[in-house]
Amino acid sequence: MTIINFMSNLAMPLVILMIALYGIIEKNTVFDDFIEGAKEGLEIVFSILPTLVGLFVAIGALRHSGILDMMIRLIMPFLNMVHFPSEIMPLAMIRPISGSGSIAVAIDIMKNYGVDSTIGKIASTIMGSTETTLYTIAVYTSCVKITKTRYILLAALTADIVGMLVSVGICRIMS
């Protein structure tokens, strides 16, 4: 634990240090390069801000109108069929669309059912092994103004479902 803790604490400073050292050794104008890159970062944030506002409102509405809970109740029988714990369902549904939202839901689940319980471990594994798929696709396609995304949603969401089912399975078997 302490080693992994140390390593994850070390990763970021080490990367920055190595890059800065490399720049100095190769006699580059390091700070000018930095500023140039940082300015570009500014533009990126401003270009994705409208996307964020639009998506957040839609997701907030979905959660607070009660329709998300209703949908979970509807598919409950199916969940029971594949032995997918219904406690995890809110996380499974929000994971592809919202990073901060899914962190909030995951923390909620871990607090309620115990962080070291099987449910808590399933929630952790899902958080670690999947991404905010819809958000990623939206940001990556909208930054180059692409509207025809072909079959990307199908491929990415299939993988998410497989990842979640495996998370449930392996946590059940191994703990």
Binding site: I16, A20, E26, F34, I35, E36, A38, E40
Partner: peptide
């Protein structure tokens, strides 16, 4: 972005 720009030039 700034850090990676430095890296980009090395």
């Amino acid at each position: 972005n700034g850090i990676m720009q430095i890296a980009n030039r090395t």
